[in-house]
Write a protein that binds this DNA or RNA. Structure first.
Lengths: 366, 366
DNA sequence: TTGAAAGCGTTACCAG
DNA sequence: CTGGTAACGCTTTCAA
């Protein structure tokens, strides 16, 4: 056995070479020839039309089947869908970021529901890159997919996606802010109300200085969320202190650093609101490192209720949002439109609610 | 605006219907007609053969381009790959479980590397369902994908996947235990050594009663891992107490329940080894709930070093394994074999190492 | 009950 | 420089 070092970090073992037979993929014609029938007959057998439309003699049927298994024939999906002018049994999913558990859950929901309906999933992540998003949309246009589920980072492109695909009479579902004439599953609807609810909760616990971990994949886009909190602050007569808003990225590390910065503010905020749970997890680490105890010294609130939220120490107060359901509903919308193309546009909201857990508590009198 | 309640949990708004034009997708012929050229010419322009093989007059080129943008023509990928007899620019990824962050990191790595190489990702999760795994493999056989990355749950099927796809001269990469004649990225290689290393670490800290959270997606399959610990125990002269092995599922909740059960053992174990970080997170919650402090009262070790591991309270001692790199390397193997089909079979190992963090500490003298 | 033949939208070869 | 034309692998109508 020969050892070979391929790359700095990677040890690779090269086994003895086995010459693969360059076996050509068998075609319908090969099967027909092997079975001594015509190609049409093979098609009938494969598609199970044997019993309904056309009838095939028992013996021919078996001969064909035998040839199929013998040759390991599998029909070419490209040719099938090309010829029969339609379904590719594929739906596309475009997500902004694969690092946040929130999006995995959406993807997972989509995958499950799609599988159940017999569709395969083509997954793209734009990674916050506008060019890539555009490129992906273009790729999606050539590819014949039966439906597309979009969670765009750059809403400006929505019109393009719409043009490219919806016009082709292809079901498109938007995840996020609904767009005219397209089915949608609203992502995090009622953000406003929950911002208010969270604020009310913290206010009631005595919090007056509240920090924001405003970590977004793209700062420009979701400015609306901050406004929700601005308004909520106002309703409780609290001033908006911009130094308490930390604008950062959307990773664990961003949450960690943001919390460090916010904790350095004087006077120290007594509560932190984090745009999502992932950031909150990062923040929790920073808080613990500085020797603070949650919620005694500091309260923290997340958003999304990712699976881990309930398992953190302390369990995280957050807004529950069923990301899995988003995926399921999105696929259902696709299926519904596939079945009935002219149905009215539908927007689905997944209910959300505040989950009070142990990460929020009263302000310590001192 | 009309409100309609679609399902128990779901509020849906039905907007006014907008009659979509049933615009037929424009074909190459449509473009040719619009530009007043032949279909071949359109093909040349689209594929940029204009400069190399054939040359197209400036004016014709522009006329064609104009028609293309005018009609929003996008070549049909099915027809293209069918005719040019090959590349579909798609690679398939088959994963056992979409709920574990570990697999997501693999998927994320695959997605990135594939995108960079211009490939789209077809994602499947078998969800531990043997039928589904088989079904998926069959679907994959009809679909013409350029490469397949497999992390099988049921190794028995490997031979089938191999037959169906590798024989078609299609690059297949195995994630996990290498299989003869197939490229592979070993998943968690050196499990044995790390089991030993972990045990040595705990032993040195004075731990003698060590519990196992043996939470697997499929119990039968990975029995080998437990043996690694059995052997390690033996090497340190510790008896294997089967009551300290909790066989459970692979979710957060499984880890949580397992820890509760293990903590009820008398005498209580002083350390827990968890098959992965996810289970460890679940366990941590149980430990905290029972009022224990980690690592003072109890040590815990995970495996995988998922992103959150370093952010937990306390940060988790675990074995670092770069799941992202698994994805990247797997795609690189596909690409290499695509370029050079007869290259020797290669097995890649991603280096791992024990990450000592604060979740393990000495046994409290009492 | 089976087969011939006409495409589906594309590419690539060979004439003009 | 450009335009026929034959495939690619399949489905489906129409005849036999």
């Amino acid at each position: 056995m020969l050892f070979l070092l391929t790359r700095v970090n990677t040890l690779s073992l090269v086994h003895q070479q086995v010459p693969c037979m360059p076996t050509k993929r068998p075609t319908q014609a090969d099967v027909a020839r092997a079975a001594g029938v015509s190609r049409a007959t093979v098609s009938y057998v494969v598609n199970g039309l044997a019993n309904s439309q056309v009838s095939i003699s028992r013996t021919t049927y078996q001969r064909v089947q035998a040839a199929i298994t013998e040759l390991e024939y599998h029909p070419d999906a490209r040719a099938q869908s090309l010829r029969s002018g339609g379904a590719t049994n594929t739906i596309g999913l475009l997500l902004p970021d694969m690092h946040n558990p929130f999006y995995w859950k959406i993807a997972s929901g989509v995958e499950q529901e799609a599988q159940n309906a017999g569709f395969d999933l083509l997954l793209f992540s734009t990674s916050l890159n506008a060019e890539r998003e555009e490129h992906t949309l273009r790729a999606l246009a050539r590819r014949q997919i039966d439906g597309l589920i979009l969670n765009l980072t750059f809403p400006g492109r929505i019109s393009e996606a719409l043009k490219l695909l919806a016009r082709r009479h292809n079901p498109v579902v938007i995840l996020g802010k609904p767009v005219p004439n397209l089915d949608a599953v609203e992502v995090k609807p009622g953000y406003q109300e929950h911002a208010h609810e969270i604020m009310a909760h913290l206010f009631a616990l005595g919090h007056r200085r509240i920090g924001f971990i405003y970590g977004l994949v793209n700062q420009e886009i979701d400015a609306g969320r901050l406004n929700a909190y601005r308004e909520a602050l106002q309703m409780f007569g609290l001033p908006m202190d911009e130094t308490l808003v930390d604008r950062c990225g959307a990773t664990l590390a961003d949450g960690y650093r943001a919390a460090h910065r916010l904790l350095a503010c004087k006077p120290r905020p007594t509560a932190l609101i984090s745009l999502n749970d992932l950031l909150a997890i990062g923040a929790l680490r920073a808080i613990h490192e500085q020797g603070f105890t949650v919620p005694r010294d500091l309260s923290i609130v997340g958003f999304d209720n990712i699976d881990m939220a309930a398992y953190l120490h302390p369990p995280l107060t957050t807004v529950h949002y069923d990301a899995n359901a988003v995926g399921h509903e999105a696929v259902k919308l696709i299926l519904a439109r596939l079945k009935e193309p002219e149905r009215p546009v539908q927007v689905i909201q997944i209910p959300t609610h505040l989950m009070l857990r142990a990460s929020t508590g009263p302000v310590l009198e001192s």
